[in-house]
Simulated scan of single mutants.
Amino acid sequence: MQLLINLDVPDLEAAGALYRQAFGLTTGRRLGEDVLELLGAQAPIYLLRNAAGSEAAPDSPRRYERHWTPVHLDVVVEDLDAALAVAVQAGMKPETSILDARWGRIVRLADPFGHGWCLLQFHGRGYDEIAT
């Protein structure tokens, strides 16, 4: 299976700049006027320009204010404090303080387009610390 990540955004240039700065991604291809490919993650990320209010699903318009969604992206980093500082400078907003767990550290963020993100820093064996 090949995984592709697609994120709806209202502004390709602003979103591309944010994710390049916050996560160190690079610009790949431009696919027409409404799609921008970002590289540097384990799967390519495609930013899809879709206007606010356009249909996302039946009877569900796209909205770009922060909202709950059952899907979010985790970015694993070596130094959570440094990565958080870069992400905030790029325009991400922390939604929690840094939380410690047996497997590592985590902080939840939101981007200006309504998407939820987490930065994770693993300790020891990472998730294997809690695997049964």
Rank of each mutant, 00 (worst) to 15 (best):
Q89N: 14
A87H: 04
V71H: 09
D79F: 05
L84R: 12
D81M: 08
S97Q: 14
L80Q: 05
E95L: 14
L80P: 03
A85N: 01
T69S: 15
D79P: 08
D79K: 09
G91W: 04
Q89C: 09
V76Y: 11
D79W: 05
L73W: 03
L99P: 04
V75T: 09
G91M: 07
P70T: 09
A90T: 05
D74G: 15
S97L: 12
S97W: 01
Q89E: 15
A85M: 00
D79I: 02
M92N: 01
S97F: 07
L80V: 01
P94H: 06
V77A: 04
V76H: 13
I98A: 05
T69N: 12
I98N: 05
P70N: 13
D81N: 14
M92K: 01
V75G: 02
T69F: 12
V77S: 07
I98C: 08
V88N: 02
V88F: 00
A90K: 01
A82M: 06
A87C: 06
D79Q: 11
D79L: 02
G91S: 07
P70R: 07
D74P: 06
L99A: 13
H72E: 13
I98Q: 08
V76Q: 14
H72C: 08
A87K: 00
L99F: 07
V86E: 05
M92R: 02
E78C: 07
M92H: 02
E95A: 06
E78G: 15
L84A: 12
T96M: 02
V75R: 04
V76C: 14
